[in-house]
Write a protein that binds this DNA or RNA. Structure first.
Lengths: 194, 194, 194, 194
DNA sequence: GTGTAATCGAGACGGTACGTCTCGTCTTCTG
DNA sequence: CAGAAGACGAGACGTACCGTCTCGATTACAC
């Protein structure tokens, strides 16, 4: 059934583009990662980039994800609270790197005017992290560590939302113990305890 | 004390620019609110715009803030929980308007590459809302409704962060009862209650 | 030897720009030949124009020269005096066309604030004409028609200078027989003949 | 009848404008003599300038003429040839000053797109000089120094044209002895003398 | 091996927004 | 009420980046 014809796609070019995009994005932010610069640094032509990616946002997202590929923390053998703190802490650590923070802000920014990119960000950046946390929360409920009637999605947004909020708007810091404080406060609630 | 000299700034022009910027932003998103379009619709020259605003982002933010000037909900005569739900609910209602949501996303997007605009967004959009909530929280503590040891900033980010998170990334809806659920969940905590 | 790389320059675009620039310049003078108008009429983007020409002046000069490409009169088989009159006459005829006169005035005007354009005008408009006249004068001396001690450059300026002077300042007409009168008067001198 | 009413025109302002215009023009060329700069340096408002002059060209011309007011050489007690050389020499000397040359080029340039300015240049700059030379030439004919059948206008253009030609196009120098060589060559003609 | 077909580097192109500049007009307050 | 101050509309300038296109030069696989 139809063996492929013609010159196959150059793996080398693909990798070079992703590295160039990631480098430029991390070094100079989104503005520095314009297509011509990516192509130039990758030793690749713009046409090649646009052949395999629909637009700049897609390239930059791929380059970014390649750079942070190993950042998806899978907590193992930890109790519920520790697991939550661990995973959130990993994200805080990531966001604290100004280069990565800036890159992610840039990508989120680009996604505002590109629904397809927005979808990709959700599916390839957010979803995996949320899946892990969903598992932790479900297990936590099963283990009796968490209330059985909690709203998983909302919990995640109350744990991660503050991070992204501060990242995007810069109105507050991302201190080292932020993960602990987030989990702790949500865990015990802020209502008066009698 | 130096009376003013020269022709005073045209209030009419200022208002026309803000209205044009706001209209275009709400109608067509950030992309539609380019400077020439704003100038054209306002019956004003580009030079006048650039005389009073440093760049497009600043104009658009001003236009937007003018449009939502009355959206700052001041809860009066409400108990702590109701006050929180009220104010967050107002923001949810605002964000649910796709035109306003899109506008705010656009502005946040623009702010990623313009630190001055980012600062303005913090000071003129976020800060007033946070001030109100800060007051509510402080009063709530004093009234014994809330734990005295809560982290005010963090509480606000756990209440508002999810909204902005969902607004910016679109991974979850903004249902009508979101304010209630946010407050409720944070109030009582998600830990198992014995 | 060194095959060309990349997409070759579009000859069509180049020609369209020159024609548009020439047309606009001749139809409406320098003011009408602004870059956006040239780009629009040529069906070309501004970026393409600025890729190949450093500024408006350069485009307009090229467009003009293209229009008058065939105006360089080479006198053949004429005796010295007739040859001079012929070549000068050609220029007079050109200058008498108000569209061409206006165009050339515009270009000279632009060149006052653009040394590079001034150089181009000298090299591409003046020099070729002066080369022809230099040859005529040199031959005229050799043939014994002209004084052997004449200053070639000065002769040319006394023949052509009046034309450009009247063109630029408009203080005198450019009658049909101007070439003849210029040559005649310079030939015989204005001193009293004993 | 009817003594004038209101505040009379400030002579001081008029002079300050002319001096500022002249200074700027001579210091930085036409580009530096923009209206705001003139007004600023003169301590005068733009409106005042536009009240008394129709446009920038007119101001600049006036400023320039004020600066060179005393440059109109009236040869007295000289024989025809010496008188011609004297007056042309004065102009050569003027043109050799790069600041004045640049200023005059700028004005001529501006005049290409402003017929009214062109007229003013003719009447107030060229005409007086031509009047003097006309007188010299007429006297020269009467004295028997010059051919009685010469074309006065053409003679002037063959004497002055080369100066303006070289000034405007920069294709040749303006050496010290240019006046002498111009007069000499035109006087004796370039035809072979038998 | 030779043909065929898709890929590649290079880079020109149309489109479109940006922010800057100067001109000449106007509006207000001050002396 | 003339004039300084300076805001304003108009509109051209040159720059930047996007995504598309057109070349000629490379590869691989198929025959």
């Amino acid at each position: 059934m139809g063996g492929q014809r013609g010159r196959p796609r150059s793996e080398q070019a693909r990798v070079a583009v992703l590295e160039a995009a990631g480098d430029l994005l991390l070094e100079g932010g989104l503005a520095a990662a314009h297509v011509e610069a990516i192509a130039g640094r990758a030793g690749v032509s713009k046409a090649t980039i646009y052949k395999w990616w629909p637009n700049r946002g897609a390239v930059v997202l791929d380059g970014f994800l390649e750079r942070v590929r190993h950042s998806l923390a899978i907590p193992e053998g930890l109790r519920t609270v520790a697991a939550l703190e661990f995973q959130i802490g990993e994200l805080v650590a990531l966001f604290r790197d100004p280069r990565i923070g800036s890159a992610l802000r840039g990508i989120a920014s680009e996604a505002q005017s590109d629904p397809e990119l927005a979808r990709a960000v959700r599916e390839r950046w957010l979803a995996p992290r949320r899946a892990v946390t969903t598992a932790v929360l479900t297990a936590g409920v099963a283990a009796g560590d968490l209330r059985p009637d909690l709203d998983v999605e909302l919990v995640m947004d109350q744990l991660y939302g503050p991070l992204y909020f501060r990242l995007m708007f810069g109105h507050g810091p991302l201190p080292d113990d932020l993960a602990h404080r987030l989990v702790n406060q949500l865990l015990h609630g802020i209502g008066h305890q009698d």
